[in-house]
């Protein structure tokens, strides 16, 4: 067995950076999920579908603008917005009637939305793999401490903290964020003081789904865009949210960090079973802190 045979400083360094860029994607998706779970109490399985749709729209928009710098930025800008629009329709059309239902029903309801979205994506984009080419500015490598490192991954690693700060600012410094946090604790009371809770919920849902779309758009250039990427990401995002503490943005960041790094370092330790490591870590964390590492809003 090639157990731990290829651990070198250079590989370790490189895998850490790869893990950190993976963390960014995981964090962006998981924080959106966490926001929706924390405030609306919806275990939104369809979050993964929105991530997939984000990636596919990224592909199409990029193609429409002929790729390159313009195509990339337009796509990164437009595809989360398009996903947000879809989620607004879903929320106003369906979810707003279901807030009082049990979690299990909501879980199954969002799962059925996943089934519908999965087939709709297959209808629109077909079941072939799609790829997005990076603009020239993001191709190539930076040399950090003598090690080559892909520019796009560097861009991702910077994006992560920016999004985290943006979310922190939104939930702690703005009016809607403060109302949303209050509604997470006691939605009836917030309604009683004359605030339209339903609209606040809609806004939070749309912001959460926007993040799913953003995650999908950002991940698009780094991997094949395909059917089934929704199922893969959503389970990871759920585990990250649970591990970090339901509804806690920093918990999502911490969880994503743990998940991303164990995954990428695990590839060095034991390539065949690399996908097992993150799950092992989640299980260990939940054994000792069943309610997650950081304080949950539930």
């Amino acid at each position: 067995m090639d157990f731990a045979s290829n651990i070198t400083i250079s590989a370790l360094f490189q895998q850490t950076l790869v893990g950190l860029s993976r963390t960014t994607i995981l964090f962006i998706v998981a924080s959106g999920l966490s926001l929706i779970l924390g405030v609306l109490r919806i275990p939104n399985v369809a979050h993964g579908s929105l991530y997939m749709i984000g990636a596919f729209i990224m592909y199409s928009v990029n193609l429409f603008f002929g790729g390159g710098q313009a195509g990339f930025w337009m796509a990164v800008l437009l595809s989360p917005l398009a996903v947000a629009l879809i989620s607004l329709v879903v929320e106003r059309g369906l979810f707003q009637y279901l807030y009082e239902r049990e979690h299990l029903m909501l879980l199954l309801f969002t799962f059925s939305i996943t089934l519908v979205f999965g087939d709709l994506v297959k209808m629109v984009w077909g079941s072939d793999y799609r790829c997005v080419d990076l603009p020239a500015a993001f191709q190539g490598f930076y040399t950090i401490l003598g090690f080559p490192f892909p520019r796009y991954n560097f861009f991702l690693i910077i994006t992560g903290p920016v999004v985290a700060f943006g979310l922190w600012f939104l939930t702690n410094m703005t009016r809607i964020g403060k109302i949303a946090r209050a509604a997470a604790v006691d939605r009836e009371m917030v309604g009683a003081v004359g605030i339209n809770v339903s609209l606040v919920f809609a806004a939070v849902f749309v912001i959460g789904c926007f993040l799913a779309g953003l995650g999908g758009a950002l991940v698009a250039p780094t991997q094949n865009i395909r059917q089934g990427m929704d199922h893969a990401i959503i389970i990871e995002a759920f585990l990250i949210v649970i591990m970090g503490g339901l509804g806690n943005i920093w918990g999502a960041l911490l969880g994503a960090l743990i998940f991303g790094l164990t995954d990428s370092i695990g590839i060095l330790v034991w390539p065949q079973f690399a996908i097992v490591f993150p799950y092992v870590v989640v299980v260990i964390v939940l054994l000792f802190c069943p309610k997650g590492l950081l304080k949950s809003t539930w």
Partner: peptide, 11 residues
């Protein structure tokens, strides 16, 4: 597209 039908039935 049978999962589409299943999804709608479920909803």
């Amino acid at each position: 597209y049978w999962t589409l039908v299943l999804g709608i039935v479920l909803m």
